[in-house]
């Protein structure tokens, strides 16, 4: 199980959003840190195949990002996305399950499991337009897990969640990391400190640091701020 990002760049006219990033991600949780505009979301979109790189290639277990089989192995939670207001939570998951190619009985079973996992089973039959921000975020996490993905891309997964839910989802992501490749981005450094095996730091579209994070190194937040500052000074 390996995600290979090979010299991937994304250029918009005069602006380079992602600059020749290469990485090999294996089973485990990868925390992606970086300031706003560092290129995290752009990189994640390219990994999800919804944004074409200007150059470079992305593959997962030999499958190119453009292939349907690649998308079948993928679960994606975007940073900011909408819902269908006329759908209930259950409708939304069944619709997403159909998009992921799940057969009807399997889809129903999986949707019920996930609604329970994200504590939305009581409001499963309510329309999503009545959901709070946190409930919508939990529904988003549920849809990302629908197809039992081998590659899970989570852009700010804990945004909008209350502290209790955050801790629960941190644990869940950690569990998922034992089974698949999880790449998550967040502004909350402590989230990454708790669950990520490997930390990646992006700045101005470049990957400036990538290594396993050991507790002996001290505080990740301090390390991150220090690293960013060093980069600024240099």
């Amino acid at each position: 199980m390996e995600l290979i990002i090979d010299r991937v760049s994304k250029q918009y006219q005069n602006h380079i959003a992602v600059d020749r990033i290469s990485a090999k991600l294996q089973k485990g949780v990868y925390g992606l840190l970086g300031e706003n505009g560092a290129g995290k979301t752009t990189l994640m979109r390219m990994i999800c195949g919804i944004l074409q790189p200007t150059s470079g290639s992305i593959s997962f277990d030999g499958m190119d990002v453009s292939e349907e089989s690649y998308r079948a192995a993928l679960g994606y939670l975007p940073q900011d996305f909408g819902y269908y207001p006329e759908f209930t939570g259950q409708d939304f998951l069944l619709y997403m399950a159909a998009l992921k190619g799940l057969a009807k009985p399997q889809a129903k079973k999986r949707a019920a499991e996930l609604l329970q996992l994200v504590s939305l089973e009581d409001v499963a039959k309510k329309k999503t337009k009545t959901y709070s921000g946190g409930m919508k975020q939990r529904l988003g996490i549920a849809q990302a897990l629908l197809g039992q993905p081998k590659l899970l891309i989570l852009d700010e997964p804990t945004a909008g969640l209350d502290p209790k839910e955050r801790v629960r989802f941190r644990d869940l992501i950690k569990e998922l990391g034992a089974e698949c490749v999880v790449l998550l981005s967040t502004h909350i450094v402590s989230d990454i400190e708790h669950i990520a095996d490997t930390v990646l730091i992006m700045k101005h579209g470049q990957l400036i640091w990538q290594d396993r994070w050991e507790d002996e190194r001290g505080s990740l937040e301090d390390f991150y701020l220090q690293h960013i500052d060093e980069e600024v000074r240099s």
Binding site: G49, I50, E68, Y76, F81, M96
Partner: peptide, 15 residues
């Protein structure tokens, strides 16, 4: 406009 295209287009049958 709803930004649902992100999850739709990265699903196996979305395209």
């Amino acid at each position: 406009t709803r930004k649902t295209d992100q999850i739709v287009l990265c699903s196996p049958l979305g395209k």
